[in-house]
Amino acid sequence: MTSVPLSPTDATLPKVTVRRQTASGRVALTLFVIALIALVAMPWWAKTGTIRMILELCCYIAVAQMWNMLAGYAGLVSVGQQAFMGAAGYAMFVLAQTFGVNPFLAIFLSLLVPAALAVPCYLLLHRLDGPYFAIGTWVVAEVFRLVASNMGWLNAGAGMSLNVMKDYSGFERNVAMSLLCALLILATIGGSYWFLRSRYGLALIAIRDNPVAAASQGVNVGRLRFMIYVAAAVGCGLAGAVYFMAQLRINPPSAFDPMWSNVAIFIVMVGGIASIEGVLIGTLIYFIADRWFGEYGASYFVVLGVMTVLVALYARTGIWGAISKRWDAPWFPISRHLILKAEDRA
């Protein structure tokens, strides 16, 4: 140990700087901004079919990133995030179709529903650990589906159509969809990056690595997990509201489809858990695979399942984990690199 007296509050504190950004991060940030601009500008360069396809891709990214925040960081393995997608989707349809609210405004208002529902759900579920929590989230989503199937004012099992969208021209819809795509990515990817770079992100990574130690170092583990659960519900809700607006139809089986959780798990596990980069890579793999091999039906799902299991067994950090072991060039750097001035190096 050094002979310097341990007195960290005196004037002898070392001179330090902390590096937060990297060259790869700057390049990625530039590309991210360009991607957002390209999303906003879609009506001027993409056909309606392309916009719908990209919107679907954005929804996958958003839902997978929310699942990543839950399972990859907060240790909350949920298989029921479709509950909040469906709840927001239905809320948007009811507001726009039943109450005549502007459908684009209804998207934002509908986010209050998953936020409000997430609170009692979490209070109910947080007492459960690991697999019990996962099963609990699935049960909640199934309850939501059954409730929606039996509610007359939601048109029960027949579902609802968003006829009010006929009031808008094709171009207007494309502009709205493009803006919503950009917003979805900005809110879920940009929002997650901003959060993970903050001191709360530091605490969240500490919880991921060792929740008991994090609590003994002053981190309110319960409150942070609660915040992430509610935020993930809102993020999934936004994806649901946008997705079903583009579909113009909603019914209980599609609104509360467990496929969303399955896809999110595949994307995050294969791409790389606990990294934003992994979500982007995993989504691209899923999306391309879905386009190329989707026609093979059940056998295609078997291949995706086998891929997930193989990654879980032999490459638990996913594709991004393997890449980052070889090249230390994060796209979304969140670490803090301490630089001690020469005279202060121990």
């Binding site: 001191r199 530091l202 605490a203 500490a206 690595d209 060792n210 130690a213 994090a214 170092q217 803090r336």
Partner: peptide, 17 residues
């Protein structure tokens, strides 16, 4: 330890929270 974080970041958690 918080295995995925640097030594410095381990201390930052304790210091800030």
């Amino acid at each position: 330890p918080y295995s995925g974080m640097s030594t410095f970041e381990n201390l930052l958690v304790a210091s800030t929270f």
